[in-house]
Design a protein around this nucleic acid. Structure first.
Lengths: 255, 255
DNA sequence: ACCTGAACACCGTTCAAGT
DNA sequence: ACCTGAACACCGTTCAAGT
């Protein structure tokens, strides 16, 4: 359950001192609902059950309140998602721009973003299609823009790059989380790495067995199509985007 | 509703001949359900009401049957989504590889993909995180791989590029469709273009009004951050990816 | 073989009524 | 001011029963 619910209480029973952690509803003076508590509980629930595990109802249940009570603090589920994303964004540190080293700095921020999504399963789904308008998200946007522009990238290229790169990382994380969720639901596996290898193996076999006359390249390069884990694919994508940006920055020099 | 439901019928009432188009259930010899009819109806419904407008129940209603009947032809909603995506994929023509011109050919295929998503609102959401395993999707993967490899791109770079570029286009389309859906739901606007300009305007104002000391770059480049429509941003992204690929192909020469 | 009604276990959101 | 129960209008999926 939520981090806020646990309290310790000490009883005296003759010579014995009993110290218990209570988390049953009856025992505590019901804490007031706040946005903070709601977001805390949503993050716990999301980490445990994935994006679809967080409903206004399950969240109310976790907070031991009625679902309607949540709407006194949060406009709707979309706003809740925004608050959750903003919270995780605020965990990320963006470095001071080092103009000599902008390309590597950008890559590192984007790698950190993926790690952040990974640390909080379900969040990538919530972040898809979200524009940063809150403190946390804006800080990251500010930091990435700063790295680009202090590094000499033209403003228009920098702005579009930040947008596109963030979208890309989010999409990679979302795909990963879909597969992770599929594993959790399907059970049968408890090792994620092993599961991925299984999927890749089956996929490679499937590609390899297609009619070779109509799909010569898919069958011929089945190995390459299924190669690499999430990190390798992210790294490849970051290489494309960043080395592309170095080139594009020239073309957009005047914008 | 679906294209299949309308029939004309002629009655004789004394001297008058009445010709009606019936689409009420009672009048027609109920057509058998098939996968084809189900996918047809799902596409119509999705175009009209977006991704969330297609539920197994609303779909059954549109087909004038019970929701359980659908499960005789389609394993679950996920399979339905796959069939819909595969159907739209089969609308796309992939060109014969022209090795001199591989970069432009790739961009054109990816532009066509975005057009396809746009022509069928709601599909990008369904396609997110989907691996092509059916005829239609595989054809596109085959075609893109062929263009890359015949153009001299190393196999591993080609394979990862196809994956990443498809993900990118899908994510761009998904973001667009979220905004479009938001407009449809919110009503008040009936011109999509005007709506986008409104959103961009408000966003630019919001960015511009942030505390300039903490967000110097976001406030300073508010115009660039909100500039450009979907096409310009896609084009920029394709430039990054494809020019990045030309560079990466060298580094992966041996793989 | 194919289809159906009814059920099960869920959603997000609203609102009059309570403390 | 804050919280609640109950309702409204939905979901995906299953299954015994019908034709």
């Amino acid at each position: 359950m939520g981090a806020v619910e646990k309290r310790t209480k000490t009883f005296r029973a003759g010579p014995v001192r009993i110290r218990v952690t209570t988390d049953d509803a009856a025992a505590r003076p019901k804490e007031r609902l706040t946005r903070e508590r709601i977001v805390d509980a949503a993050m716990d629930l999301m980490a445990e059950k994935g994006y679809d595990g967080v409903s206004m109802r399950s969240l109310a249940r976790a907070l031991d309140t009625g679902q309607a009570s949540l709407y006194a603090h949060v406009a709707n589920k979309e706003e809740l998602d925004q608050l959750v994303i903003d919270r995780i964004c605020s965990e990320l540190d963006v470095p001071e721009p080092d103009p000599e080293n902008w390309a590597e700095q950008l890559k590192q921020v984007l790698r950190d973003c993926l790690e952040l999504y990974r640390a909080h399963p379900g969040t990538a789904r919530a972040a898809m299609g979200m524009i940063p308008t809150q403190e946390g998200g804006l800080r990251i946007a500010e930091g990435m823009l700063a790295i680009c522009i202090r590094g000499g990238v033209s403003p228009q290229a920098a702005a579009w790059f930040c947008d596109i790169a963030a979208l890309f990382v989010c999409a990679v994380a979302y795909e990963e989380q879909i597969w992770t969720q599929r594993m959790v639901d399907g059970a049968g596996h408890d090792d994620l790495h092993e599961f991925h290898e299984d999927v890749d193996g089956q996929l490679m076999a499937a590609f390899g067995q297609l009619p070779a006359d109509r799909f010569p390249f898919v069958t011929g390069y089945a190995r390459e199509l299924t190669a690499g884990d999430g990190d390798e694919r992210l790294e490849f994508g970051l290489d494309l985007l960043v080395s592309g940006l170095e080139a594009a920055s020239e073309r957009y020099r005047d914008r």
